[in-house]
Design a protein around this nucleic acid. Structure first.
Lengths: 153, 153
DNA sequence: GTACTTGCAAACTGTTTGCACATCA
DNA sequence: TGATGTGCAAACAGTTTGCAAGTAC
């Protein structure tokens, strides 16, 4: 498995189509801005923050506004279509909500993010549920360090 | 192990003394504000954010300013005495840097935080180091859900 | 046509900074 | 006494909101 192994993208199909489907399934209108935003998040090989999505969006639609980006990101989050990530930074990053739960390994030098899954995380959750009686609803595991390329520096 | 099991506080001793020791060990002056701040973070049974620490600090020293809180929090963080936590929220929480690495289990309803350690986390790190060639420098594991008391609701 | 969305500008929140005064070593 | 630290106010960054105009259904 290469270290560039971002978890495979959803089989594309027609992303505009699926954007429309996703939105109408929750009674939201499929505006061009929303379709564009969903495409960008889906295509993005990384995990983008709002200003970055704004920058990309303006390349395709120069009239789009930053508040539209924010409004739609929180709508998509509320609807459960995307995840908001909180690395050890001030702002948020977004990703399409993955089918399988996964976690993040961030290179603090080049910013590259690797997603991973591990059976150990399930064991951890089970252990905690048993030990503390919690009903666990969300799990964030974010490790950071230097990737093989940046370790030399 | 009770569910109120916040990891035991450092054997206190004299917290003012140790504050002074901590600060002078890195060539920083032990001002009353810093001593107070360190005491508050140490005493706090939870993980407080800056505005909360400010509120508490003003009860003891009404003239203290919020920027002093921020300045000293980032100094203490830079010196490695405290950790900055990023739950899935906008602002930061702080805790005295623990001897043993530990992680967090947050109740989303009452805000109660349980700290835990688990050998599984070491296995996870080892697995990732091996699989992706990373040198891991920081690990954040934050789970959230409902604690036994709040689960009924 | 009408309710939902957008763009814009202005407001807000958490945090940082410049500067004159105060204080610890 | 001189470097370090504080308080205050003003600046910032990221994000949210009110409102009039625009658009999907």
């Amino acid at each position: 498995m290469s270290k560039r192994s971002i978890v495979a993208q959803e089989e594309q199909g027609g992303s505009k189509e699926s954007a429309k489907g996703i939105l109408s399934s929750v009674g939201r209108r499929a505006t061009s801005q929303r379709t564009l935003l969903l495409e960008l998040i889906r295509e993005a090989q990384g995990h983008l923050d709002a200003p970055e999505l704004y920058r990309l969006a303006r390349e395709k639609d120069p009239r789009i506004s930053l508040s539209t980006i924010y409004r739609n990101l929180s709508m998509l989050k509320a609807m459960g279509f995307i995840n908001e990530l909180h690395f050890a930074e001030e702002h948020h990053h977004y990703e399409i909500k993955p089918q399988a739960e996964h976690f993040h390994l961030l290179c603090v030098r080049c910013g590259h993010v690797i997603e991973f899954e591990s059976p150990l995380t399930e064991s951890l959750k089970a252990e905690l549920t048993k030990r503390h009686g919690f009903t666990i609803t969300s799990t964030a595991i974010d490790l950071a360090g230097f990737c093989p390329d940046c370790r030399g520096e």
